[in-house]
Design a protein around this nucleic acid. Structure first.
Lengths: 347, 347
DNA sequence: CTCAAAAACTGTAACGTTACAGTTTCCATT
DNA sequence: AATGGAAACTGTAACGTTACAGTTTTTGAG
């Protein structure tokens, strides 16, 4: 009698989506048992586990995220922190897709935490940590002495960065080997007979500026050719400005005959400046550029390209934060994508 | 005595982040009163509200999302459903940024729900509805008879679409006026003396294929010029294929002298095909293209462009879902972005 | 001064989950 | 037959919030 009344209350659950209570009622087990059976706990009988899991599947049980989160504190969310000011960062979508791919088979949801350069880049980081709105974060545009890395480390908050730092902190990261890229680029240009090279590098405040510049310098030294400074132009500025700077560069008394572009978009600006000046790609001058989509290459087959796989970056970053959340040591979560080499001009 | 012991228990809250209990303890009020004071309920005294809100600010109180979500069922999340197969959908990042901008000032978080064309596009939609992992969804790549729109409507689940449908269902949407775009493009080309026009349209399965094609046809009729079919090529296929199709088109006995491209990336393929054929842009042939970044235009100043603002689209979509969640009627949540007109070639 | 009604405030329960501390059942030893 | 212990299962409480149904206090009318 008493039991019947108790069970009667459970019928309430029949209305919405199934909960542990629903399954407990259907199997005649306790809620705790059901919970433990579903997570394959050792103190539940094999027979029972099978039965519970079967019923759970039949009724389409999905754990209520709010319940889990409230009880355990685990959000099952990974936050990707993005700077929304970037205009030409088309590859960002590839990173996002890569992260998504990796998280698809997990229980994690991906949330985007945007910020504008007009505000403090620390704001979104502090927000996530303070409100614990995610279990881990992915950040990009890392700087040599990145305060976000310090903050996250100090707070023991799991994260992974796209790009390394010089903080002296061992933290999870994924990076493209821009040093190798620049060296390969220089070698390829020299092999084509170019002797006066210039590099369109990223903004000096970013870590990979150093890597790319150093690689370039090392390549130039190794090959014994001339490096012509590409002043006041970075890959992350508006293409019009890059083009203007490139035009100025080409007007010098000793213009470069080989250019290296640190981004796919930058290459367009360089090509535009070159052709406007009446020079011919492949004859008067050559370009090696990074590319993430075959846009430039299809357009100007003479261009030399090195592929950078941003989907891979997204996957690696997601994997790294996930492992970091699970307690892996940072030093084991650092991956460097080595470029395949310079792709020859298309026929 | 009894009271003292009770309050003593509250000290536990001092450890982590502040909760309603913390504020209740600090102000000597009940938890309920604090909760109501913070949401400006009418049955709380002005004096008390001020005091509570002050303390809340001082201790940096932020409502626990899991608590709210568990109790009220509201997730404070909006899901953006994305097809991760698209390679060249660089503008997707602009939509994302637009959505972010609009949600930044609200309590909503943005979560990304990806899917691959290899699976059923309904999967992510069903997932969100069944698990109630968001309060509303934004979907793109709408088709005339989109099953997702039917499903969401039937389930009374708030959503907004990027692109209209022909379902006969009044639902929230934002769209770019591709009909107007195509007509403007035709007029601009005719004004330049072009008489044989071809359109690089989107995939026929998408709703806006109709809009753009109809606009093109109407323009051609109005201007009394010839429409040359652009066979087997759509803006959403790999650029190499577009280029190949364009090359074939230009080899016809009566090739077009004016091209309309439904996407910025497509324009690159067209320019490549044109120049490879030895034709000169602005002299032998003209192109009108949609663009979201000034890449093409900077590169080939002769090109005619119509701007499409994807950030705006993101903002409008976010606004629409939000309003839809708040119960606004769908018919009031439909916005059409009318193109500014064709931008003249740059000097 | 009384009393009704309005204003201001509060305790309890519940959302769905899991950690913890049991309790019951069953079996192998003595 | 008693007993110790392992195996299998369960109830309670708590995470932080809010709806609901109160209770206390204040106010104003008579």
């Amino acid at each position: 009698m008493n039991d019947q009344r108790r069970n009667g209350q459970n019928e309430a659950a029949a209305g919405g989506r199934p909960t542990l209570k629903t399954i407990a009622f259907m199997t005649g087990l306790g809620v705790t048992t059901v919970s433990r059976a579903l997570k394959d706990a050792p103190d539940i009988g094999e027979e029972t586990k099978k039965r519970v899991q079967l019923v759970a599947r039949q009724v389409g049980y999905r754990p209520n995220r709010a319940g889990v989160r409230l009880r355990t504190g685990k959000t099952n969310v990974i936050s990707l922190v993005l700077n929304t000011d970037e205009q030409l960062m088309g590859f960002i979508s590839d990173i996002i897709y890569g992260v998504s791919e990796e998280l698809a088979s997990s229980s994690y949801h991906l949330i985007l935490t945007p910020y504008s350069s007009r505000n403090d880049p620390m704001d979104p980081i502090r927000y996530v940590v303070e409100t614990h709105s995610a279990d881990g974060v992915i950040i990009s545009q890392t700087e040599p002495n990145d305060p976000r890395v310090r903050y996250l480390t100090e707070h023991g908050f799991p994260f992974a960065t796209h790009g390394r730092t010089h903080t002296g902190i061992e933290h999870p990261w994924h990076d493209f080997d821009n040093h190798a890229f620049a060296m390969q680029a220089v070698r390829a240009l020299v092999a084509k007979g170019r002797r006066r090279l210039a590099l369109l590098a990223p903004s000096p405040k970013l870590t990979y500026y150093r890597h790319m510049s150093d690689g370039f310098a090392e390549g130039v030294e190794e090959q014994g050719c001339a490096a012509i400074p590409f002043r006041d132009a970075w890959v992350d500025m508006p293409v019009e400005q890059i083009k203007a700077a490139a035009t100025a560069l080409l007007r010098r008394s000793t213009p470069p005959d080989g250019l290296v572009s640190g981004s796919g978009a930058g290459a367009f600006a360089l090509v535009a400046a070159i052709e406007e000046r009446g020079l011919q790609l492949g004859r008067d001058i050559d370009i090696v550029t990074k590319q993430s989509t075959p846009l430039v290459q299809m357009f100007r087959p003479q261009i030399l390209v090195v592929n950078e796989d941003f989907r891979l970056a997204g996957r690696e970053l997601a994997r790294a934060v996930r492992a970091s959340i699970d307690g892996a040591v940072p030093a084991s979560l650092q991956t460097l994508a080595v470029p395949d080499g310079v792709e020859a001009p298309r026929p």
